[in-house]
Design a protein around this nucleic acid. Structure first.
Lengths: 151, 151
DNA sequence: CATGAAATTATGATCAA
DNA sequence: TTGATCATAATTTCATG
C-alpha cells in the first residue's frame, strides 16, 4: 500500500467524517483523486466501514467486562461464535491461544444484566466462563499511526 | 435519552457516514430536526467521535494480543495509562478488577514487534506482563442495539 | 491525477406549534 | 423546546482530458 493511502486511512480512522475536501488539503491531492483512493480502499476492504463511537455510560451500558470461555465438552464442534452472535451485548469475539478458547468483550446496563448474559452465554455455547470486570477505561479505540510506525 | 435519539445513535454507530437526509428518512423527522439532534448528541458527548474501521491485516498489523499488566512495586503510584499512552501500538487500556490491574489490547506487525513492545511496556510502566495472542477475530466493533434491548 | 459542472447534502435563519 | 420550511453554502460525484 502506498504512503498516501496510509495517510488517508490514518486520517479517516481518526475522523471518519472528514470531508474529501479536507482530505485533499491534508494529502496535497485533488478532491477527485482522494475520492478515487477512498473508494478503492473501501472496495479492497482496507476500510471496512464507518462508525460513530458512542459513550456507553451515556447510553445506558455502563458496565463492560471481558468474558473468557472454555468448552465444557472439548470434543464438540467449536461453533461458539455463531452460537453467540445473536447476543448483541457482545461487542467482540476473539479466538485466542492459551487455556481458554475465546475472549468476549461485553457491554451491559448492570451487574444483574451481566449475570443474565453469562447464563445465556453458557447455555448457548455450552461453555464455562471466567469474567473480568472493567473498572474504567483510560483509552479505547485508538488509531495506529500507519505513517512512520513508532510502536 | 429519547427514543428517537437512541435510534439515531444506533444508526450512526452502524454507519458513521450516513447522511442527514438518510437519517431523516429512517427516523421520520425533517433533515434539520435530525441535524439538530445529532449536533446535540455530539455536544453532550453521547457521540464521542467518528471513525473509519480498518482491516488490520491489510494495513500491516496482522497480530493482535491482549496484555495484562501487574505492577512490580505495588506501592508505587499507579500511572500506567499515562506512561503507556505514547505507545501507539496500544489500541485500548482498561483498568480491571482481579489479580492484574490493566488489560491492554495491542496491534503489531509481527511476533518480533510484539516482543519489542512487551519490553517497552515493562520498562515504561514497571510492570509484569501476561500476554494472550489472538488467533482470529470472528467479530469486533459490533454495535449494541439501543432500541428494544434484547441482550 | 486534475478540472469543472451537476447533483446531492449540510447548515443556519426564520417561523409555527 | 422541538420541528418544518426555505435559502444558501459546501461537498460529493462523475464525465472528460
Amino acid at each position: 500500500m502506498e504512503d498516501i493511502d496510509r495517510r488517508i486511512v490514518t486520517l479517516l480512522a481518526r475522523d471518519g467524517r472528514m470531508s474529501f475536501t479536507d482530505l485533499a488539503r491534508e494529502t496535497g491531492l485533488s478532491v477527485s483523486a482522494v475520492h478515487q483512493r477512498v473508494r478503492r480502499l473501501e472496495k479492497r476492504g482496507v476500510i471496512r466501514s464507518y462508525a460513530a463511537l458512542i459513550d456507553h455510560d451515556a447510553v445506558g451500558l455502563p458496565l463492560t467486562a471481558f468474558v473468557s470461555i472454555k468448552p465444557i465438552d472439548p470434543s464438540a464442534p467449536d461453533d461458539a461464535p455463531e452460537r453467540l452472535e445473536h447476543l448483541t451485548a457482545i461487542e467482540a469475539c476473539h479466538s485466542v491461544a492459551g487455556d481458554e478458547s475465546y475472549i468476549l468483550k461485553v457491554r451491559v446496563p448492570s451487574p444483574n444484566a451481566l449475570e443474565l448474559l453469562l447464563q445465556q452465554i453458557r447455555a448457548a455455547a455450552n461453555v464455562a466462563t471466567r469474567t473480568t470486570i472493567v473498572l474504567s477505561t483510560p483509552y479505547e479505540y485508538r488509531t495506529p499511526d500507519l505513517t512512520g510506525d513508532a510502536s
